[in-house]
Amino acid sequence: MIQLSNVTKSYQVAQETFDVLSEINLVIAKGEYVSIMGPSGSGKSTLINIIGCLDRPTSGQYRFQGRELSIAKDQELAVIRNQSIGFVFQQFHLLPRLNARRNVELPMIYSGISQRERKERAESAFEKVGLTDRMNHMPNELSGGQKQRVAIARAIVNEPQLILADEPTGALDSKTSFSIMEQFTQLNMEVTTVVLVTHEEEIAAFTHRTIIVKDGRLVEERLKQGEAMNETL
């Protein structure tokens, strides 16, 4: 489903070129449940942004569902983001003037889906995340965990093939974090590919495979059991 070949992401700082990612080679199959770990500044968020078509590699190839995206036009990438990828972020990114249901309907509005179908899909998404009784609440009336469930409902409402989550539990307490991870686990059991960034071992333990990034390189890969599969990839 996801294939990165020799992907490098560079930035120009003054007269020097700084590589945030260097020669990344990574394959993620359909239906996998993967976490990406690494210290601050390691490049893990840049990596997930490239996977999510929010950024482009400086060099190398990125194939998503067999399609080469490194040279795709911005409009093509926007369609893929809207229709094939669901995003969940640490700070929720809910619009404060819209209630929970309207926030969840936003991706469908951009897709041109009718009002009736938007309502039906939103209700179904809220049922999946166990939040049907909060659909008409404003974001400031919700707890942190409830806000993240709304964000997950928004991410799945267009039935994407891939869910990307960048530190989805970073703003939550431990009990709420585990509840949110159980939600991701359930989504993965429904054959949705889930890739998340985290700095917490307890969160990564929910996933089936953990990829370690350090200084812009993939340095280690672990199975769920914690046994190293491959080092210095």
Rank of each mutant, 00 (worst) to 15 (best):
G66N: 11
Q146H: 09
Y62P: 04
A205Y: 04
S5D: 09
N82H: 12
G86A: 05
S59N: 14
Q186N: 13
I50N: 07
Q61G: 12
K73C: 02
I36N: 01
G226H: 02
E167F: 05
Y11L: 11
Q12N: 14
Q161T: 13
A72P: 06
S59D: 12
N230P: 02
Q90N: 11
T176Y: 10
G41K: 11
E127K: 15
L223C: 11
Y110R: 10
R67C: 04
D19R: 14
D173S: 10
K224R: 15
T210H: 05
D215L: 09
L142E: 01
V20T: 14
V194E: 00
G216K: 08
F184W: 00
F64C: 01
G216F: 07
E190H: 03
M135E: 01
A153M: 01
S84K: 13
V197F: 00
E127V: 10
I212K: 10
T198C: 03
R102A: 15
R97M: 15
G226D: 08
S59G: 11
T169P: 08
K30I: 02
V7A: 09
F184S: 01
I50P: 06
M1G: 13
Q91S: 14
H93G: 11
L172E: 09
A151S: 11
S35F: 00
L187T: 05
L162Y: 00
V129W: 04
R101P: 03
A165K: 04
A155K: 04
L94F: 04
T185P: 07
V213E: 10
G31W: 04
R56A: 08
E159M: 11
S35P: 01
D133A: 14
S42A: 10
E227A: 13
R222A: 06
M229S: 15
E202T: 09
A151Y: 07
T8E: 06
E105P: 01
E76K: 04
L172Q: 08
S124F: 13
V157L: 02
S22M: 05
P168C: 09
V191D: 14
M1W: 07
I85S: 02
K224H: 15
R118C: 06
A165S: 09
G31A: 10
I71F: 10
E68H: 09
Y110L: 13
I28P: 02
N188V: 12
H199K: 04
